[in-house]
């Protein structure tokens, strides 16, 4: 079994190694000048250098602040509205059509409106992150809570449990796997959206660094923030999966 796993890991490392080799090959052969395609080594050494640079870290911290603020708002709104829509038919009738209309709208198109209303600072970016992350969380919560076995709720109610306690001891724990899946998707989306928002209009943050480097044709510096945000996404995804594994011992893992 372990032999099989290692060989599968090796097979999986192959395309990544091939891509890196191709990248290195093209850069080293001089087919593409470094201003178009810097060598992978140059990019990674620059990345390491930047990770020790307080200015770069400050930009990253600003990005993280916006990311988590928007994500937190999305989690609160998504879970509360999702639970309310399952529990109350009026709310459901109200929320469902609104979600049906708003969910497929590309939220990035709303960004100009957010800029005009909330200004160029943190608020408009946080609003965009929240708007993008809220729908997967809301839908997952709604699906999770409406799939809870009604008999569980009935038994608890028959045993005299008050409605609020049923919500916290039965409905939410039973819906947790679905809610967490929604949150994980929302987290990756937040990561991407905050970067795009900073690319569009910002004076700080990782996205701004990319645009700034593009304007001054520092190709190496264009790759660095992109890799940084991708690493951040991988890291957040992995830590979320670890959290999920702790909270839901025995549930199957997901991609």
């Amino acid at each position: 079994m372990t032999g099989r796993r290692t060989s599968e890991l090796l097979v999986g490392a192959l395309p990544i190694a091939l891509l890196l080799a191709l990248w290195h090959g093209i850069a080293a052969s001089g087919m593409a000048p470094p201003s178009l395609l810097p060598a992978p080594l140059a990019v990674f050494s620059r990345l390491v250098e930047q990770l020790c640079n307080p200015v770069f870290l400050e930009h990253a911290a600003i990005t993280l602040l916006r990311l988590f603020a928007g994500f937190a708002i999305a989690v609160v709104i998504g879970v509360v509205v999702g639970v309310a829509a399952t529990g109350n038919r009026m709310v459901e009738a109200l929320v469902k059509p609104v979600v049906r209309v708003l969910a497929p709208v590309p939220k990035i198109a709303l960004y100009p409106a957010f800029i005009l209303i909330l200004g160029f600072e943190h608020a408009s970016k946080i609003a965009l992150v929240a708007a993008d992350a809220v729908f997967p969380i809301l839908l997952a919560t709604y699906q999770g809570t409406s799939a809870v076995e009604p008999k569980l709720v009935w038994s608890a109610r028959a045993a005299g449990t008050p409605a609020r306690k049923v919500l916290f001891t039965i409905v939410l724990p039973a819906a947790l796997p679905s809610v967490l899946t929604g949150c994980r998707i929302g987290l990756v989306i937040s990561c991407i959206v905050v970067f795009l928002a900073e690319m569009i209009s910002s004076t700080n943050g990782l996205g701004h660094l990319l645009v700034y480097a593009a304007r001054s044709f520092h190709t190496v510096d264009m790759f660095v923030p992109l890799i940084a945000i991708s690493l951040l996404g991988l890291l957040l995804n992995a830590s979320f999966n670890a959290l999920r594994a702790r909270l839901l011992v025995g549930f199957p893992e997901e991609w």
Binding site: E8, L9, V11, G12, A13, L14, P15, I16, L19, V188, C191, I192, F195, L196, M199, G207, L210, L226, I229, S230, L232, G233, L234, N237, W255
Partner: peptide, 19 residues
């Protein structure tokens, strides 16, 4: 699947529009 999965997982969180 073993060939493609790690690659896909690596590029999954890259913001494509930022490319």
């Amino acid at each position: 699947a073993a060939f493609f999965n790690p690659l896909l997982m690596t590029i999954y969180p890259v913001p494509k529009a930022a490319l």
